[in-house]
Computed example of a mutant assay.
Amino acid sequence: MLVLYGKPTSINVRKVLWLCAELDLPLAHEPTPAPDLLATLNPNRQVPALRDGDFVLWESNSICRYLAARQGRDDLLPATAQGRAKVEQWMDWQATDLNSAWRHVFMARVRQHPDFADDARAEASLTHWNHLMTLLDAQLATTDGYVVGNTFTLADIVLGLSTQRWRSTPGNKPALPHVEAWFERLRPRPGFAKHVDNGVA
């Protein structure tokens, strides 16, 4: 049995939960692993972590890649080098550029963390985040419905969660019609209502 560790309010845990719903993959979920257990699973002491028998893996996007490959889902993660690279390109962009952009405004306006009380920095963070979301909008304008083409992939999972967070964070945002249309296309997906658009940012 696969075991996933991490609270379901974590955006990175929700990536894996949504993917498992897509895969119809049985999963034991332990939302609050003990600190000593978490330290043995991940030297960074962060979630999610996945256990598959004796095999342990951390980093949410790596876990998603592993599960898609484990289940032979070439539709979610193509087997061809170029097809896989296109999906992974957008997954890596989500994990680096997009995650870095939202940190200050999200922590200030959603988590209301006192260490992020500088509103000017929060506004600058939102401005940069908005800019990156316009890049996603431009990409979606060129495809046939999803991030890398006419097929739903892992790129849509990780960016779908990022988009839900963007939509949920207070502040002025540009109209992004292609992002909005794509987000509506994601709504019927298995697990979307439970793990993505569930009122949790």
Rank of each mutant, 00 (worst) to 15 (best):
P35L: 09
F55L: 06
G199A: 08
G53C: 14
A34M: 14
M133C: 09
S60P: 03
T96M: 06
H131I: 08
P35K: 02
Q164M: 06
A68I: 00
L67P: 04
R109C: 04
R165M: 15
L25S: 08
V87C: 11
D24M: 08
T153G: 03
F116R: 06
P78Y: 14
D119Q: 07
N99R: 10
T143R: 11
D137I: 14
A101K: 14
A108M: 13
N42Q: 04
R14Y: 13
V87T: 05
T151P: 01
A141S: 08
N130Y: 11
L41F: 00
A85C: 04
T32S: 00
S100D: 12
V87A: 05
C20E: 01
M1W: 13
L38M: 14
A39N: 05
T169W: 08
D115F: 03
P35F: 10
A69T: 11
Q94P: 03
A49R: 02
V179H: 03
T163I: 15
T40L: 04
A34N: 13
D119Y: 07
N12C: 09
M133E: 10
Q71Y: 09
E22H: 01
D97F: 09
E180I: 13
V47I: 11
G191I: 00
K86S: 12
D115K: 01
F106G: 09
L76K: 02
H29M: 08
M1G: 14
A85E: 01
T163R: 07
H113L: 11
D156P: 10
Q112V: 08
L186C: 06
D137S: 05
T32Y: 12
